[in-house]
Design a protein around this nucleic acid. Structure first.
Length: 419
RNA sequence: GUGGGUGUAGCUCAGUUGGCAGAGCGCCAGGUUGUGGUCCUGGAUGUCGAGGGUUCAAGUCCCUUCACUCACCCCA
């Protein structure tokens, strides 16, 4: 072994790779049903997009970005999240000039230079959905319902939904000041004291018991919401309830990105080691302006594909046995038969029947082993004797029953059998 | 950045007070010169993570180092 995947990255191999593909598709399906359109943005962007969009004070920007200069000296960064890119694309192409909201979904790799542990890798995958340009609690709720539907479709039962409101530009600063006053009076380490000045809400998220113990009397945002935010939040809550989506109010739910306002939520699961979130999102009414655009109140989420996969593994939802790779497997004996088989297999594929064959000049026994391991229901056997007779043997590998079929009918017969 | 754990066959792992490098699964071949999955027989696969030291002798003891992994911090 001379090379291995870089630290914090890993390969998806069959059959898990097929399963994770299915996970991704299941998470995305509800969004597509709701009229969200697919957007694909570059894997790297101008570093400043993330610095301004995600926020200079966040850990993501201050120490977790994969930043590099290109040959012309531009500073580029591998995307650490998807929302900033989507907003950039919307603004660049003036999509907000059309009908609102602009509904988009995406799926792809994200990168953060973090210390590695279970459920946290330097290369990870998210699917995301964003609804831009409209302020409507029904839109926040729609997105939450769609995410919940995706998790439910995968069979996940132990997903919890945490919900909070972070207020807006009217009430958030007032609360922030009140919280800072409270936190400054606590006995905290230097790093945490520094965080009070930069991003005080994050302190609420501290997991250490000695910190949490001191936070019991902390002022909570729910008690400081302005009338507008309070009404908005209540509407989201009642729509969620009416939709039959269970959630827990979590007044200390804060997320790692600066741009969130009002509705914030997180889907958590216990099967990820010390990580917990399998998805999350919220409203980001000020992000467009932070990026130099017009006011564009928006809401969105991102769901962790690899984390969802871990959650499914923890719940025992991944099948033990791999599904068959193909339906028919060709076994040929002799050079002439091999050439004929090569074309028969191509014809089968052309007819919509998945097919593979033994390559590499294996003997009959080895080729039949290949047929067995492929998971194929039928082996298509062609030897010199069969070729001379203008026929092939079709063997049902589940019953060992074998019948002779004229070569001209092989494709039709197999097509009929696999349906 | 900090701490714990683990590195032996493709995979999962044994390996005793230092004394011939092992098992199961997988892989290959044969039993069956045209038939898989079960069964039987045989076979191949190793820088014991790397480097150094102690010793007649090191997978085993000592030092250094690297990787992986889990956790802290932090985060989806």
């Amino acid at each position: 072994m001379t090379f291995q995947a870089p630290k914090g990255t890993f390969d998806w191999l069959p059959p898990r790779s097929e399963q994770v593909l299915a996970v991704r598709e299941a998470l995305v399906a509800p969004v597509r049903l709701a009229g969200y359109g697919y957007v694909e943005t570059p894997v790297f962007e101008d570093t400043q997009l993330f610095a301004r969009g995600v926020g200079e004070s966040t850990d993501i920007v201050s120490k977790e970005m994969y930043t590099f200069p290109d040959k012309a000296g531009r500073s580029l960064t591998l995307r650490p999240e998807g929302t900033a890119s989507v907003v950039r694309a919307v603004l660049q192409h003036n999509l907000q000039a059309g009908q609102l909201p602009v509904k988009l979904w995406y799926s792809g790799s994200q990168f953060r230079y973090e210390n590695v542990q279970k459920g946290r890798y330097r290369h990870f995958w998210q699917v995301g959905a964003e609804a831009l340009g409209t302020e409507d609690p029904a839109l926040d709720t729609e997105l939450i319902v769609l995410a919940a539907r995706g998790f439910a479709a995968l069979g996940l039962r132990n997903v919890r939904l945490l919900l909070n409101s972070l207020g807006d530009k009217t009430c958030r600063p007032v609360y922030r000041a009140a919280l800072q006053d409270f936190l400054r009076g606590l006995d905290l380490d230097d790093d945490t004291r520094a965080r009070i000045e930069i991003n005080p809400l994050r302190v609420l998220d501290d997991k250490r018991p000695e910190v949490q113990a001191q936070l019991t009397g902390a002022p909570l945002i729910v008690d400081h919401l302005c009338e507008g935010c309070k009404a908005y939040h209540e509407e989201v809550r009642s729509l969620l309830t009416a939709s039959g989506i269970a959630f827990e109010d979590d007044p200390k739910l804060v997320r790692g990105l600066d741009y969130y306002t009002r509705t914030t939520f997180e889907f958590v699961h216990g099967g990820l080691g010390s990580q917990s979130a399998i998805g999350g999102g919220g409203r980001y009414d000020g992000l467009s302006e932070m990026l130099g655009g017009p006011p564009l109140p928006s809401v969105g989420w991102a769901l962790g594909v690899d984390r969802t996969f871990l959650a499914m593994e923890a719940e025992g939802l991944l099948p033990e046995t791999a599904p068959g790779r193909v339906q028919v497997y060709g076994v040929a004996l002799g050079d002439d038969a091999r050439r004929r088989m090569f074309h028969l297999v191509a014809e089968l594929r052309g007819a919509g029947v998945s097919a593979d064959m033994a390559f590499g000049g294996k003997g009959l026994k080895g080729a039949m082993k290949g047929a067995d391991r492929s998971g194929a229901r039928f082996a298509l056997i062609l030897g010199e004797r069969d070729l001379a007779a203008g026929a092939a043997q079709v063997k049902d590998l589940t019953t060992a029953e074998q019948t002779e079929v004229p070569l001209a009918q092989v494709v039709d017969v197999l097509k009929g059998k696999v349906q």
